[in-house]
Amino acid sequence: MSFKSTLAKFAVKQTPKKMMLWLANKKIKGVAKLTDFHFNPAEHKLYVQMILSGEQEKVELWIEDFTLVVHEKSYKLVIHQAQSTRPWLDKFLRNFALNRELKIPEQYADLIHGLLNSDFSEPEED
């Protein structure tokens, strides 16, 4: 494991949950407010609890199986299984997100690589 990926994993593990929520909420301001989360990269699981803008009830989202794929220098996330507490969000996930390669923005690629380094497939050869 590289120094950079070790440092990224250490930083995430040592950062208090309140700080992580604050940072995430700065990024998604105006769309939703994260109220809780749990991320387990070893088991490929993510749980998120949020309040969407304009709503008052919390929405829960479980991503229970995902893969990170490398194509040359770009990173893509493939979500294989997800569910939520909203039927419309479940349908959205089924129709637009599940089993599709979702490109990870370049500015977050190193962080994602550091967090999930051991879960990457080898780059595909063209």
Rank of each mutant, 00 (worst) to 15 (best):
Y75D: 07
H80L: 06
L111S: 09
V59C: 05
A82T: 07
L116C: 14
H80E: 10
N25E: 04
Q83P: 00
I104A: 01
W62A: 02
K33H: 14
R86V: 12
K26S: 06
E57V: 05
V59T: 12
F39H: 05
K4P: 00
F66R: 00
G30Q: 03
R94Q: 13
Y47E: 07
Q83R: 10
Q49P: 01
A109N: 01
P87E: 02
K29R: 13
L111K: 02
M50W: 02
H113M: 11
K45S: 10
N40E: 15
E60T: 15
L34S: 05
S84K: 07
K33V: 15
M20T: 14
K17C: 06
E64Y: 00
L111R: 04
S5M: 08
K9P: 03
E124V: 15
A42I: 14
Q56N: 10
L77N: 04
F3L: 15
N117S: 15
S53I: 06
G114C: 06
A82L: 06
W88M: 12
I63H: 00
E55A: 01
R100F: 08
K58H: 05
H44S: 15
F37G: 04
S118E: 15
M20N: 05
S84V: 08
G30I: 06
T6A: 14
P123A: 04
K33W: 09
K58I: 08
K76I: 09
L7E: 02
V78D: 05
Q56L: 07
T15R: 08
M20F: 04
L98E: 00
K33N: 13
E122A: 15
W88A: 08
F3Y: 11
L77A: 06
D110V: 09
K91S: 11
F39L: 15
P123E: 03
Y108V: 01
H71F: 08
W62T: 02
